[in-house]
Simulated assay, not measured.
Amino acid sequence: MVDGDYDHNAKRLKAIWDQDRIPVVLRRGGKGQSLRARLPFESENREWLRNRRRTRPVWIGGENQKYWELPKAWFNDFVNRALKKYGMVYIIQPYREQEICARACMEAEGHECQCSCMGANHGSGFHGSWFEVSETFAVRSREPELACRLMVSKRA
């Protein structure tokens, strides 16, 4: 990702996280990391999040941060219930973009490229960061980044 794209994405994610009209859940990828969630303010948010479970959500409220921490196992339930109650929910989660190319492209000479990489890997040489499925198909995953999607309920 180009630095300008990264800055734009970070600003967009921060704006989504900071808004207070649509619920947001941040599913982090690290082992043992809790979910983080933000909801439009209601006095019953703690009870709604808990949903008669034994474990209680933890409120993290500081000057610059205000969110709930929830067990990872609550993710699907949180999304389903937020869709039912609010009609939509933002999900911020890590993802790895996958590149697809071929050894023939990476070892090519000249400038003509007809590969799906659109020339990004053309003539770059084949090295160990790629998983070669066959002579005509190789993949590699980039470092994890955060992506956001808005889920909207199908109800009328």
Rank of each mutant, 00 (worst) to 15 (best):
A82S: 06
E145W: 05
R52I: 10
Q19C: 06
E42C: 13
A138E: 00
N64H: 08
K66F: 11
G30H: 05
A120P: 07
H122C: 03
L49I: 01
H111I: 09
I92P: 03
A120Y: 09
C101V: 00
F131V: 13
P144D: 10
R142I: 05
F131P: 03
E109H: 09
T136C: 06
Q98G: 10
E135V: 04
S141I: 03
I92R: 05
W48L: 01
V58G: 09
E99A: 13
D7W: 10
L146A: 05
G119Q: 02
G119A: 03
S124A: 14
A73W: 04
R21G: 11
C148L: 04
M1R: 14
G62E: 01
S141T: 02
R21A: 13
A102H: 01
G62V: 06
K85M: 11
N64C: 13
V2F: 10
G110R: 14
A138V: 03
N121I: 05
Q93Y: 08
M151I: 05
G30D: 07
E135Q: 09
F41P: 13
A10G: 07
E143G: 06
F78T: 01
Y67M: 02
R96T: 04
A102L: 01
V2A: 13
R56A: 12
G61S: 14
G87V: 03
Q98N: 09
Y67A: 04
G128Y: 08
R50W: 04
V58D: 10
L83N: 02
S153L: 11
Y86C: 02
I16R: 03
K31H: 15
I91G: 07
V89E: 07
A15C: 12
E42D: 08
L70E: 01
F137R: 15
V139F: 04
A156Y: 11
R46Q: 12
E109P: 09
W59A: 15
W59S: 14
L35T: 00
V89K: 03
P40T: 00
L146S: 06
C115K: 00
M1Y: 14
A108D: 06
W48V: 03
P23L: 00
W17Y: 04
A108V: 00
Y6T: 11
C105W: 01
E107H: 07
E145G: 10
H122E: 00
R53C: 05
L150S: 08
K31F: 12
H8L: 15
R155L: 08
G110P: 01
C113K: 10
R149T: 15
R53I: 00
S141Y: 15
N45Q: 07
F126E: 13
L150W: 05
I100E: 11
R27C: 13
P40N: 02
N45L: 07
R96S: 04
N76C: 15
C148Q: 08
E135M: 11
V79T: 01
A37S: 03
P23C: 02
E99S: 12
N45W: 05
K14N: 11
I16Q: 08
E109T: 06
A147P: 05
E42R: 12
A82Q: 01
F126T: 13
E112M: 15
F126D: 08
P57N: 06
A138I: 02
T136R: 13
W59H: 12
I91Q: 09
E143Q: 07
W17Q: 04
G4C: 14
E47N: 09
